[in-house]
Design a binder for these strands. Structure first.
Lengths: 258, 258
DNA sequence: ACATACATCTCGCGA
DNA sequence: TCGCGAGGTGTATGT
């Protein structure tokens, strides 16, 4: 089969040849990399214009489209997976457009020169594993509640309350209710307000004393005073440390929980 | 000059040849695209592991690194611009590592097969123009305050108050103070609470009546009641409409403001 | 360097 | 489908 080849690369193809190659790729769900001179117009939630320049266009097998300049982490324009593509050869211009629904957004790429067009059938079935996420911190706290303080006992996890979900909910050694908001980064103003929101929500439904604890690797500078004024507490916890704790083979019983 | 060529492409290079090519690229600040079979290890704020699979690696001329699988909008691993790269040929493995400082993070890519390696000198000096940002909405309101309501007069822009910055601050036709929070998307609970925070901050420093107005294309479903209970108002404003308003050649005096 | 807020944020989860 | 919150968020803009 012609299309079973692992990859193909064409240097300085004509725009007609490129159009043919792209047409086949769209049918065969391959991944496409084009480098050339083109401009980009986007219209949707916002709109943008980028005049001609030499850039990289990637079309993935799931319909995701990325346009990258020679600098910067972020794509300058894009379309998410599931977008519908069309290719069209106009006079001296090769036009690729991608449409997304909900929200309706259109992306139009106009090439006047293609340096390289390459197509690939990429086999990639590996799992991606990330450690030290906020969820790892949740797990670590449930596994070893003393990370919070001696005598802390978790009651529920991701408890639903009026304004949202409480990360961890429990009681301290004195029987006081404890609401915990966990952040994997240095916690700022928003985190404090989020915690305050949950604490007031619980308070409005109970007469018991409530402690609100912000758990994060650190808090930003001006926040300590805000914390005190809202009668909230801070406990330092490092996400990497939590991840290492979970890697230990002992106490795998936690798996049952998730 | 050997290195003055626009681009180069090699198919199925040996890992030694690839290492040579990459070494030159790092010196010449070109943009590099490699497609091959590799694994990725990351360690920094978090850590991750991705076993061998066929993927795309891009190294930009500013040191940004992107690793893309054949699906999804986001890179599975990356390093931001300014990262320091090293390339090393081990037995049957080509290793590219990238280090970032502050935070210190390391990325290690190990190739056992390269399908294609290509290098490019991309000329791209075009301006990227985006319309319908939140800032465009701010500008439109200052240009045409009646977008809020008849008789509204803006006083200040991005006014600093205790908990942060007020987007737009002014007085209505009755002389009441008006605090405006602008969102370019459908506004949710967080936007309402943010506005409430500013209003209470202003109230605590003045005895005058304060109106808090949330300006956005729409508000999420359950929010109307919350708004009323906090005595706040909502005014619909579409970011695209604001952008079109700014495109009109008339009233360019606003430029002076920014 | 640190803190704050925006983003065409994207993505996943739950109702 | 909508709403909400996490993210190795990144990026710009202050201080």
């Amino acid at each position: 089969m012609i299309n079973s080849e692992k990859f193909s690369v064409a240097k300085n193809p004509t725009l007609e040849d490129a159009a043919t190659i792209i047409g086949k790729v769209l049918v065969n769900k391959k991944t496409l990399i084009i480098v050339g001179n083109f401009r980009v117009k986007y219209d949707g939630r916002a709109s943008s214009n980028l005049e001609y320049g030499e850039r990289i266009l990637i079309v993935k097998s799931d319909g995701a489209i990325l346009i990258h300049r020679s600098f910067g982490y972020e794509p300058v324009n894009w379309q998410p997976p599931g977008s519908i593509l069309h290719v069209q050869k106009k006079s001296n211009i090769l036009e690729i457009s991608a449409i997304r629904r909900n929200p309706r957004e259109t992306l139009k790429v106009s090439f006047d020169k293609i340096f390289m067009i390459s197509t690939f059938s990429l086999d990639d079935f590996a799992d991606f594993n990330l450690f030290a996420s906020e969820k790892d911190m949740h797990k670590a706290i449930l596994l070893k509640p003393s990370l919070i303080e001696q005598g802390f006992k978790p009651i529920s996890y991701e408890k639903k309350v009026d304004p949202g979900f409480i990360d961890v909910y429990g009681v301290d050694k004195n029987g006081k209710l404890v609401v915990i908001e966990v952040k994997r980064r240095i916690a700022g103003k928003d985190a404090v307000l989020q915690l305050a929101k949950y604490v007031t929500a619980i308070k409005s439904k109970s007469d018991r004393d409530i402690r609100g604890i912000l758990v994060a690797p650190n808090i930003s500078k001006g926040i300590q005073t805000l914390l005190f004024s809202l009668d909230l507490e801070f406990i330092a916890l490092d996400p990497k440390k939590c991840a290492n704790l979970l890697k230990k083979p002992e106490d795998k019983k936690l798996e049952l929980f998730f």
